[in-house]
Amino acid sequence: MKPFTYERPADVTEALAMAAAVPGARFLAGGTNLVDLMKLQIEQPTHLVDVSRLPLGQIEETAEGGLRLGATTSNSQVAADAKVRARYPALAQAILSGASGQLRNKATTAGNLLQRTRCAYFYDTTKPCNKRQPGAGCAAIGGIYANTAIFGASQACIATHPSDMAVAMSALDAQVEIAGPGGRARAIALEDLHRLPGETPHIETTLEPGEMITAVVLPPPPPGGQIYRKARERASYAFAIGSVAVAGGKVALGAVAHKPWRARVAEQALAGGAGPAEAMAAELASAQPDGHNDFKLKLMARLGAACLTTTGAGSDQ
């Protein structure tokens, strides 16, 4: 681990100022991803600004009838919240399907969104990886690690985003509230937070340097059923090999792309009266498996159709 300095701000303004003051500074929340990566010297921040004790730990009602989840609310706290469970069951299910109880106690809403890929070659620092070292090449292409993207991959990177929570938030049309240097504040759709890899897979989000996430806002729950289901290699404590979130007529897929994959094509098909299997087939028509991850086609087709059937989002004729 590279030596680094550490500071703990009292409020958001101070946090932004501290981060702006030192080049190479990073925000530290639960640390469950960042510190692991620092130990492997994949992340090498010079300075850590610990945001975990900022007063952003509340879950509040919004005027619109939704919920605002503070950036530092823990995954456990959100999943256990009665309002979340009653109104956003897909989100509670998604969070509870991720990591372990211990990790969820530490992991935060913002940190979870910004966790980095689990691509095996990203973690093995003896391998070329465009995310770690832009221009170095991508060991996953032509490799045998199979938990890779079937949507939106590029010649530079075929990694997936590993978060469960973010997939449910995507289907729920969540907004991300952001504070930037000089007190600039903005809000974007969660769908616009993460980027596809393109030629610059090391730039993973649309956050500007020095910006921090202050909250995630959930609009009022859409009419209709909700569900989150995750396929994985063991019953618990494993990243998804494919997951599906459904909220009313909204569908998002996990472990298939560099970001939570909003299944707009499937949604349109459903809106046009398609049944679950038909809607999933329409979405998957544009998927581009690479030979190693072909299983994801059958998996997503079946899992998606099963979720849509359960929630009644479409009915097969």
């Binding site: 689990r118 973690y123 003896t126 060991a139 045998i144 690690y145 063991r234 019953a235």
Partner: peptide
């Protein structure tokens, strides 16, 4: 585990990627 045919390294190299039964299993 699997051996990468280009490098001779194991694909899984930590306990997040190398799965043994969890309690829930």
């Amino acid at each position: 585990n699997e051996v990468d045919p280009r490098y001779g390294s194991f694909i899984a190299q930590d306990l997040a990627g190398y799965h043994v039964p969890a309690h829930a299993d």
